[in-house]
Design a protein around this nucleic acid. Structure first.
Length: 149
DNA sequence: GCCAACGTTGGC
DNA sequence: GCCAACGTTGGC
């Protein structure tokens, strides 16, 4: 079992479904690194921080669990779909994972606060300009962040 | 295979 | 909503 961090914009992508404890697809982007990560690394049972971006309270807000490992956006291959042809191979499709809401953190740990801790200096999230929407978190980082709650 | 133009992400 | 920092695309 591994730890992840996934970004989302609150209000997008079925957040309300998450709140109702449903399973929700987390939609990968076309970014190669993110897609390869979903395809090759993310597994059922992995835990992930849900990071809220592009909003008033930016930071780590929730914990979700991966309930279905990475799968390609087969809509791209469905000749009945208006998205047909958007991807022409398993390798160029967007990849999804399904997640289930696990719990809300007691408070949101902001980006500034994450940056202030030397224990987290190697977090993939933190360098300026990082645009990866899904990334690994080490067990040490995970445990430390939970102590900040 | 370079690189300018364009598109997107995401903090502010 | 602005715009910096990236990633992607496409002409050459």
């Amino acid at each position: 079992m591994q730890y992840r961090l996934m970004k989302s914009e609150p209000g997008e992508f079925g957040i309300l479904d998450l709140a109702r404890d449903k399973v929700t697809p987390w939609i990968g982007v076309r970014n190669y690194q993110a897609r390869n990560f979903l395809r090759d690394q993310v597994r059922k049972g992995d835990l992930a921080f849900l990071y809220h971006s592009n909003c008033n309270a930016i930071g780590i807000a929730r914990i979700v669990i991966i309930v279905r490992a990475g799968y390609p956006d087969y809509i791209s291959f469905d000749s009945d779909s208006s998205h047909y042809g958007a991807a022409n191979s398993r390798d160029s499709a967007c990849w999804y994972v399904d997640v289930r809401f696990k719990r809300r953190l007691k408070r949101i740990t902001s980006l500034d606060e994450l940056r202030s801790h030397s224990e987290l200096r190697d977090m993939v999230l933190l360098p300026k300009g990082n645009r990866l929407s899904v990334m690994p978190v080490t067990k040490q980082q995970w445990d430390f962040i939970l102590t900040l709650e």
